[in-house]
């Protein structure tokens, strides 16, 4: 296995350059959600390098990344931090016990479930599924917006899907079986 958390991260595509970080904080300063993080992106790198695996993977901060790639574009040391966030989320997801937030888990589950099942997304269906998985009361919160969208002809209730569902399900399953790496 891995010598430490740093080498584990470095083994994934995108995680290679983590040791080059000079802790300048450009990532944090460029991140639109870092103001709400307990551990800023720079600190997450520090924690990884300090081998604090559980602290990092249990942190809700990793789920606050909006994938805007600002940190990646601006990093003066070429670290692809958005990719590192994805790696961290992957690891946290695989070790589900480390995922605490019900909303996040519910949404990701609903989205992924729909894709695995049908290959295409439908926002209305996603919201319904998400609400049922987390808190059905949410449906009421989404209802007014849903109505507006419906009126504007922007909600599709028929479930779209790919024709070759067998093929899609097969490749998704094979990918899942290979440890999700």
């Amino acid at each position: 296995m891995f010598k430490d958390f740093t080498s584990e991260i470095m083994s994934y595509p995108g995680g290679e350059k983590i040791t080059a970080c000079m802790q300048c904080g450009t990532c944090t300063g460029s991140c639109p959600t870092s103001h709400a993080m307990q551990y800023t992106p720079r600190r997450l790198i520090s924690l990884i390098r300090a081998n604090q695996r559980d602290t990092v993977l249990q942190s809700l901060d990793i789920w606050k990344c909006a994938s805007c790639y600002s940190c990646t574009t601006r990093c003066p040391r070429g670290i692809k931090f958005t990719d590192i966030m994805y790696i961290l989320k992957n690891l946290a997801w695989k070790e589900q016990s480390k995922m605490e937030n019900k909303n996040i888990a519910g949404f990701y589950n609903a989205f992924q479930g729909l894709i695995e099942k049908r290959g295409r997304m439908n926002e209305a269906e996603l919201i319904m599924k998400y609400s049922f998985q987390t808190n059905p009361v949410k449906l009421l919160e989404f209802a007014p917006l849903g109505m507006k969208m419906l009126l504007k002809g922007r909600a599709a209730f028929s479930a779209p899907s790919v024709r070759n569902q067998v093929q899609l399900q097969k490749i998704m399953k094979l990918a899942q079986e290979r440890g999700g790496e």
Binding site: S67, Y86, Q112
Partner: peptide, 18 residues
């Protein structure tokens, strides 16, 4: 017969699937 690209969700959960 295109399928969903996975957006930012699938990459968060499973790199190979993404």
């Amino acid at each position: 017969d295109w399928n969903c690209c996975g957006a930012t969700i699938t990459p968060s959960l499973n790199q190979l699937q993404s």
